[in-house]
Amino acid sequence: MANLNSNFPNPARRANHSALLSLTHPNKSMFERQRALLRKAVPAGFPSPADDYVERRLSLDEHLIQHRESTFFMRVAGHSMRDLGIFDGDLLVVDRSVPATHGCVVVAVIDGEFTVKQLLYTAQGKVLRAAHPDYPDIAITAEHDFSIWGVVQWNVHKV
């Protein structure tokens, strides 16, 4: 598919042409195939009945990433979020552009370190709550150097 990249810098167009590539004859040399594509012609033979139904294959990126510019991946280290299904070594999909509301799982920065916790707004102020009985709540006080780095949108866990 990428042998056309140089001719078609536009990713959308590239995608369409990549679909076409699989319809050309596999024994042709790459150069011939490319020429064939450039003419948008399919080598002689029976037209495939699937021709009109070529669509882009599903992409997990599209599903997991709502805002491309503000989404980052991070790796989890530790067990404190176990009961919310976030385990040691998991992959977090974090969006910085989403507002951090009550109950969100967030990546917070406390005293310069990243930590993943559930954010709660209580009468006493902001609380970071773990999802594991062994880990106590962290009440955010003025002494903490605290900020919300991003909101966790998905957790990717290897089964």
Partner: peptide, 15 residues
């Protein structure tokens, strides 16, 4: 290379 290498992602502590 936090954004271009899977093996070099930032680590987020969960402890």
């Amino acid at each position: 290379r936090y954004t271009t290498e899977w093996s070099e992602l930032a680590v987020c502590r969960s402890s």
